[in-house]
Simulated assay, not measured.
Amino acid sequence: MKKSSLIFLLLIAINGLARAQKKINDESIRYQQERMVFKQWDQNKFKPSPGFLGLNPLYWLTWAWHRDYHKHDLRPLSPLGPQTLRLALAAGLQNTEQAYKLQTDTLRNMALTQVTAYSGLVSDADPLWLLYYRHQFQPLLYQNDARLLDGLAQQEKDYVIRSKLLDWYLQESHALAERLNAARTTTLERGARIITYQRLLDEYRILQAGWEAKKQTARQFIELSESSDKLKKRHISLSASQVTRSDVQIATDILSHSKL
């Protein structure tokens, strides 16, 4: 019981001491906190003050060792304070960062524009290729060599193969297709690429016209050959009949002369 009573009395004493504490209201400390944090650096609020004719001993005991302290604004957020300078520097760096970002974005956009204009990796996305040249070159790009002679008669097919016309067209069309693929995949300025497309398209149209003309020529040649063969057969038959009549006439003449 004595131990518990002693602890109880000790707690009561501590509680009494806690209640006995008072809030310290020292103007010197309060003014120093205010001017160092947020309020204006007011020279009239440096406590203890000099007093009448500067005879206050507390003033000299406090500020004699820091004569120039009140002349310099030491607030972090003062016009020339470290925090103000840091914020100004941060704002300046942010503006510089924005300027660098704008410059890098400009360089990036220019690089993308140049890549789009020069690189063959994105040539298939060119508007002119998508809207015009892709459709014009589609028969060449997706050419089926096995069906080039479709629509021709068997005699015409034999003639085209025998006369090497098919080999000629295959060689020329494959060479054009290779040149077209090279123009699409090579790093080249967009204007030069478009000019190359147009030049190859003109050559392809000339090749197609020549191929169609040669197939028509093959058809006409076969028709002329057939007509010539018919004429030859008719001439041979007429010649044979004439020869036969002449022999009979000759024999008849010989017999008539022998009777006489």
Rank of each mutant, 00 (worst) to 15 (best):
S256F: 07
Y159C: 03
L207W: 05
T116Q: 13
A88E: 15
N144W: 01
V160L: 12
P139G: 00
L176W: 02
A90R: 11
A99P: 00
T186M: 10
I195A: 14
L112A: 09
S228P: 00
R147P: 01
S28A: 15
D42E: 02
Q83E: 14
A88T: 14
Y197K: 01
L131W: 06
R67M: 06
G51A: 02
L260M: 14
I254S: 06
A88G: 08
L180D: 05
Q40F: 00
L9S: 07
L11F: 13
Y118I: 13
K23S: 06
H72E: 09
K230N: 11
A13R: 00
E156S: 09
F221L: 12
Q103E: 14
W41D: 03
A146Y: 06
Q216M: 05
V243N: 14
Q198Y: 09
S163D: 09
K101C: 05
L224M: 05
S5M: 08
A183N: 05
V115W: 12
Q103T: 07
T84F: 02
L188V: 03
Q220P: 01
S49A: 13
V243A: 15
L61I: 05
F221R: 14
Y133R: 03
S173R: 04
T187N: 15
V243D: 15
L89H: 15
Y197L: 02
K47A: 11
D229H: 10
D126H: 13
L102D: 07
D150L: 05
L121T: 14
Y59G: 03
F46M: 02
R184K: 12
R30W: 03
S5E: 08
A182E: 06
L77Y: 09
L107P: 00
A125G: 13
R179T: 04
I161C: 01
K45A: 03
R184G: 02
S241E: 15
L93C: 04
E178W: 05
P48H: 06
K230P: 00
A117W: 11
L55M: 14
P76M: 05
W63T: 00
H257T: 14
S49V: 15
W211Y: 07
L224Y: 05
Y197E: 04
A88H: 11
L102I: 07
L89M: 14
W168M: 08
W211R: 03
Q216N: 07
M36R: 10
D73S: 03
E172T: 09
A99D: 08
S246N: 09
S227D: 12
T96N: 11
D150I: 06
I206G: 03
R162N: 11
Q171Y: 14
F8I: 06
D68N: 13
Q43R: 13
V160G: 00
R147A: 10
K233L: 14
N95D: 11
N144R: 13
K259F: 11
I29P: 01
Q171T: 15
K45N: 07
